[in-house]
C-alpha cells in the first residue's frame, strides 16, 4: 500500500445516487443531509487542541486526492460538547472529556519531546511514527499522559471515535462498496457474487468469478 493514494474497488459507485429511490426514507435523508451540510462549529476543544486533533484525524484517516475531505474533528468536538456518551467509562481512565483534553495535550507533548515542535507542525512520517509508538504504549513524554493509559486512550477512544465518524459518511460508504441506506427497499440477491441493480456493481475481481 502506497501512502499517498487510495484505490477504491468501486470507483464509479456513489450511495448518494440512490437519494431519490426507495432505498432512502425521509429520516435517513434528514440524518445524512444534516451530516453533510451542517458541520458543527468548534465548541469543546481549545483552538490548539483542535489543531492537534485535526492533524491526528488526517493521519488516522488520510484522504489525499479528495477535494473536500470528510470532516471528522468537528463531530468529535460536537459529541463532547453535547456530552454524548459511549456507555463505557473504563475505571482506569478519566471521563471522556477529561481523557480527550489530556490526550491531545499528551500527543503534543510527545511531539515536542521527540521533535521539538507541536504535533500539527510535523511531517506526515513523523506524525505516523508518534501515533504508532502511542499505539504500542511507548511514550517519550510519559509525565504528560498523567493517569491516562496511552494505548487504551488511543485505541478505545481516539481511533474508535474517529473511524465511527468517518465510516458513516456517504463518501466512506461509497469507497468500500457498502450498499448504504436500505429502507424501505432492502435487498433481494443475497448469494455470493450477486448484486441487486441498486448496489455497487460487482468489482472486476468479483465479476470474473
Amino acid at each position: 500500500m502506497t501512502d499517498d493514494r487510495f484505490d477504491s474497488p468501486y470507483p464509479r459507485y456513489d450511495v448518494l445516487e440512490k437519494w431519490d429511490t426507495p432505498s432512502y426514507n425521509d429520516q435517513t435523508r434528514e440524518a445524512l443531509a444534516k451530516r453533510m451540510d451542517e458541520v458543527p462549529p468548534r465548541r469543546f476543544f481549545t483552538a490548539a487542541e483542535f489543531t492537534t486533533l485535526q492533524a491526528v484525524c488526517a493521519r488516522v484517516v488520510p484522504q489525499p486526492g479528495r477535494a473536500a475531505p470528510v470532516p471528522i474533528a468537528p463531530f468529535i468536538d460536537s459529541d463532547l460538547h453535547a456530552g454524548r456518551g459511549t456507555g463505557t467509562r473504563y475505571a482506569a481512565m478519566p471521563d471522556d472529556r477529561t481523557a480527550w483534553r489530556q490526550g491531545m495535550a499528551a500527543i503534543d507533548a510527545e511531539a515536542k519531546a521527540r521533535h521539538g515542535s507541536t504535533f500539527a507542525e510535523l511531517a506526515d512520517a513523523q506524525q505516523d511514527s508518534i501515533l504508532s509508538a502511542i499505539n504500542q504504549g511507548e511514550c517519550a513524554a510519559s509525565g504528560a499522559w498523567r493517569d491516562l493509559p496511552a494505548q487504551d486512550f488511543f485505541r478505545k477512544l481516539l481511533l474508535k471515535w474517529i473511524v465511527s465518524v468517518y465510516y458513516v459518511h456517504p463518501a466512506a460508504m461509497s469507497e468500500i462498496g457498502y450498499g448504504g441506506p436500505a429502507s424501505p427497499r432492502g435487498y433481494v440477491r443475497l448469494g455470493p457474487n450477486e448484486a441487486d441493480p441498486w448496489e455497487a456493481p460487482l468489482s472486476e475481481k468479483g465479476a470474473r468469478q
Partner: peptide, 18 residues
C-alpha cells in the same frame, strides 16, 4: 480497538469490506 491499525492500512483493509 483490537489492533490499533490506522492510516492507509486501515482504509485499504476496509476496502475489502465486501
Amino acid at each position: 480497538t483490537n489492533s490499533g491499525e490506522f492510516g492507509m492500512d486501515l482504509r485499504a483493509r476496509m476496502a475489502k469490506y465486501n
